[in-house]
Computed example of a mutant assay.
Amino acid sequence: MNRVLAERPLEGAASENDPALRASRARQRRGRWLAHGILLLGVLIFALPIWITLVGSSHDVNTIGRGEVPLWFGSHAIDNYIAAWERGGSAVRNTRAVPAGTMLWNSAVMATLIAAGKIAISILSAYAVVFFSFPGRMAFFWMIFITLMLPVEVRIIPTFQVVVDLNLTDSMAGLVIPVIASATATLLFRQFFLTIPDEYVEAAKIDGAGPLRFFWDVVLPLSRTNIAALFVILFIYGWNQYLWPLLIITDTSLETVVVGLSKMIGRGDAQNEWNAIMATAILALLPPVAVVILMQRWFVKGLTETEK
């Protein structure tokens, strides 16, 4: 037996020199290099436009106007960002330019209210559908679910008419309330609530907890990661809203940054101030990126956590 044990390392050493094993490891290394190369190429393709925008925001208007595409920073970054933040550019071409600071504030308020409102309404409606028994419960749920099949363009004309009749145009309420409901979030919360054990409900009843107490002390804490994940998605959804703010807002003091960017690009022979446009675009990227970075841990946990 001692001789057999002594020979085992030799067998392992021999296996290290096996040509088939070396070939397999070489194929694995090539596969890893290929995968990393493809990922790096994808990152470069997606990052290059952002890099050009960031670099272009640091040059003067004449450099961009000549059609040059600089790949390194210029010396006008501070002036361009100050002009975009305070005046929406130099305002030579457009005397009604809206400051980027105002547009960013409007977009941040709108996106936050939309995300918070969608989560609040969806979690309450899903809680009612799962934990309450009333006639037509599933019928109401399917009515909510069917709205996923209706594109925004189908609903936008009647929604606009309702907002006009309620005198909500040119107001933050008109921007937020019509898009505050979310069938997708309701469906996701419902599916999560179905995984909560019935023993929790029975224990709450024994302790004398009512529906609101059970929701606040049990359901809401269990839903924190889901709420965080949905908040990131819904905040970006609200931030990127274009069609509805373009339709409902004519007051420039309520203009959002996505709409404002499109208006900064002139039509016809108008000269575009690309340095200010690029500076505003970079500023428009910062709030969504900050939300994703700050809530990344909760976002990933909410999407991947399965054990409750």
Rank of each mutant, 00 (worst) to 15 (best):
G56Y: 00
R87C: 00
I249N: 01
M295D: 00
P99L: 08
L222W: 07
V258M: 12
G12C: 14
P19K: 09
I78A: 13
F231T: 00
R224Q: 09
I144Q: 13
A100Y: 11
T53W: 00
I50N: 04
G56D: 04
I180G: 05
S253M: 03
L220S: 09
T280L: 13
A84T: 08
P288T: 06
W298L: 15
L246I: 03
R267W: 10
M149R: 13
V179L: 12
Q161M: 12
D269H: 06
D79H: 08
G260W: 05
M149N: 14
W72G: 13
F193W: 08
L230T: 07
T306H: 11
R30P: 03
A183N: 10
G101W: 02
N167W: 09
P158L: 00
E7M: 12
T159Q: 10
G31M: 08
I293C: 10
P9L: 08
A290P: 01
T252G: 05
P99V: 08
F132K: 11
G101H: 10
F131R: 11
I293M: 12
N240K: 08
F134I: 10
F46D: 04
F131C: 05
I45V: 15
L124Y: 05
L124D: 06
V162T: 03
R213G: 05
M110Q: 11
T256K: 03
H36I: 12
L303S: 05
A126P: 11
Y81C: 09
V43S: 09
A128H: 05
R190N: 12
R96E: 09
L261G: 04
Q191Y: 04
V43M: 07
I146R: 02
L303T: 10
V98F: 04
V98H: 04
G88Q: 10
F132N: 01
S122P: 06
N106M: 13
G65W: 11
G89L: 07
W216Y: 13
G101D: 08
L10P: 00
L283K: 01
D18V: 02
F145W: 11
I50F: 12
A47T: 04
E305Y: 01
A185C: 12
K205R: 14
A284P: 02
R22V: 15
G210W: 07
T147P: 04
N80D: 07
N94Q: 11
A14Q: 02
T53Y: 00
I206T: 14
A120M: 13
W142N: 12
Y242A: 03
M278E: 03
L222Q: 04
T102W: 08
H36P: 02
P197R: 07
S90A: 10
R22E: 13
F131I: 05
V258S: 14
E199L: 14
E68H: 09
L10Q: 13
A111Q: 03
T147G: 01
E11I: 09
V129E: 07
A181K: 10
E153G: 01
L166C: 00
L150I: 15
T304P: 09
L54W: 04
L39M: 15
W216E: 06
V92A: 15
A115G: 01
T184Y: 14
N17P: 00
L188R: 12
G74M: 02
S182D: 00
L41S: 15
P9Q: 06
L71I: 12
Y242M: 03
S107I: 05
Y237P: 00
V109Q: 01
Y237R: 11
M149P: 08
D207I: 03
D170W: 04
P245F: 02
M103I: 07
T184L: 14
